[in-house]
Design a protein around this nucleic acid. Structure first.
Lengths: 331, 331
DNA sequence: TTGAAAGCGCTAACAT
DNA sequence: ATGTTAGCGCTTTCAA
């Protein structure tokens, strides 16, 4: 391979010491303008690029951030989220001169060990966990050895870790409230994804809060998988048995689309359906309905920002961030 | 941070030289069983993990492979491809003890320089380019400095570079031929994505080949964006003006779905439509049609395999691989 | 402002 | 089979 130019080569050619060259590439202030210029010229001429491995070794920092994905993040349903967040993260890291290491270990049994050894090997300066990461043991371990990481999602222990999320309860609350106040709906159905997902629960809470506030006691609740056919069947059946329902608040566009289709098939014309996540599915469908832009890129960016502040010891008291979601009202 | 154990610490505690410890972690053969066991015990006790930066420096290899994505790969349409290929690549690399660096530079003007400096910094052992990468200058540069890389897609210069792709022409040929032979179709329309995409052209060629072979002279060709609404409008209009069309071969499921919808709206019942790429969109739709599993994971895996062979100087004469696509026949 | 030199943690050639 | 030692390419302390 070409280009085996080292710092020593530059030093020799420029008639200075290696320390001086090092100072030039580090943009040190204790160096004269002329020397700097002279050395820079040689660097350019020789096409010198510092060996990052040597730098990492002496600086004890790799400038690499690992993004930990679990299989849920990779399934087709999350694709949109997945690629957007990765690109949000990467965009920010590039600007800050960091690199993005993609970490996905198929085998969840070995994942913990894999990450531990990765951290132990000093290959990484920090980690970002996607979604509320469920391996509490690993998080505790990292916290214990004081290895910097941030979480996208709300962790169980919100005070200890660095994390970034939307206020999902608030968003669903706002949507539900509007259905009641402005659209005069009274029989509102909540269609959520699996209840073992935290995010489903947060969104459910917002729905409940709005009902409570407006003294509506009747709750209609459907739990479904994020599969359009399954959702359609469940919702349709439910609607057949609960004819009074006049609005449907869902936790994802795929559920909203299933709901709309179910309503159509039952000839229920005046049911208002709302979605969530502003997905590609919605964009490619012909249906118009209220949905929520959860600002995926922002989530990724902020998670990086806090993490890097932590790494560089600039983190202030506040170790979390709430990203304001944007409700895209329809009608 | 805890765990600052070094190889020297292990050596001291085990009463051996650093070389011996190094041999143990490298699993060298010239070491006795007992010493190995003894040293391993100390390693486990002290929880020693080798410093990868020091290793990289001495071995002159980072064990990191960079995956270069361009914006096309990241847009929502390609999500499925994108996340699948990334996971296919990562799965394979993990097994081979390599790491996956995600490289996406939003700014295409600086991308070339970014990658050059990345390569110059010795941070990477190799690169994988997604889709036929169009920066020929960069590829030439890398080839010139003998930096290992592989391409997913068919490059202009198929003999020089390492690459992996499906035989798209063959697949469309097979599909079109079957429509003619078995389904007795004679007026077959080709609906392709943008013609500036190589893949569109390859697939088009297969369509043409089948027609030629069967002495069908009439070609019907539609070029469309991968947007379901746009495609629908274009296709519907075209079908209205070409009423004889009795089959539609497309280059993507989104075009197939648009075609099916267009046929429905025109009450054309007997038109057979085929898709491509076996996308999430198809899986979540209720339409049944022939599509093609292009074996995305296989593509990623093979690209890694060839690349690593190259890196480790084990590459034989054949520098490319054709991954057999799987046509998922419907009916 | 600059240079000399020690050292980061490891590998590998050479010696035993 | 094991140890000694000279690097790998850089940063940084200390001295000038």
């Amino acid at each position: 391979m070409l280009n085996r130019v080292t710092l020593a080569d530059v030093a020799k050619k420029a008639n200075v010491s290696t320390a001086t060259v090092s100072r030039v590439i580090a943009n040190s202030s204790l160096i004269s303008k002329e020397t700097k210029k002279k050395v820079q010229k040689v660097i350019d001429n020789l096409n010198y690029v510092p060996n990052s491995m040597a730098q990492s070794l002496t600086r004890n920092s790799s400038k690499i951030i690992g993004i930990v994905l679990n299989s849920k993040d990779i399934d087709p349903l999350s694709n949109n989220f997945f690629s957007e967040i990765l690109s949000g993260i990467s965009d920010y890291l590039i600007k800050k001169d960091y690199y993005t290491l993609y970490i996905h270990c198929n085998n969840s049994e070995t994942e913990e060990e894999y990450i531990k050894s990765l951290v132990g090997s000093r290959r990484l300066d920090g980690l970002i966990f996607l979604r509320a990461y469920d391996d509490e043991k690993l998080l505790k371990y990292l916290e214990n050895i004081q290895f910097p990481f941030s979480i996208i999602g709300t962790p169980n222990d919100t005070s200890e870790y660095i994390w970034v999320d939307n206020d999902n309860t608030k968003t669903t609350y706002t949507i539900t409230k509007k259905l009641i106040e402005q659209n005069k709906k009274k029989n509102i159905c909540f269609v959520g994804g699996p209840m073992n997902l935290k995010v489903t629960n947060y969104r459910y809470k917002g729905y409940v809060k709005a009902l409570k506030e407006k003294n509506i006691s009747k709750e209609y609740i459907i739990e479904s998988l994020f599969n359009i056919d399954t959702a359609y069947d469940i919702i349709r059946e439910y609607l057949r048995n609960n004819r009074k329902i006049d609005a449907i608040v869902t936790t994802d566009d795929v559920l909203a689309i299933a709901s709309i289709k179910a309503c159509k098939s039952l000839n229920k014309r005046n049911v208002i359906v709302t979605g969530f996540n502003n997905t590609y599915l919605k964009k490619t469908s012909n249906y118009n309905f209220t949905t929520v832009d959860i600002k995926v890129k922002e989530l990724g960016k902020k998670a990086c920002e806090l993490l890097i502040q932590k790494i560089e010891n600039r983190l202030m008291k506040k170790n979390y961030a709430i990203i304001e979601a944007n409700i895209l009202w329809e009608e």
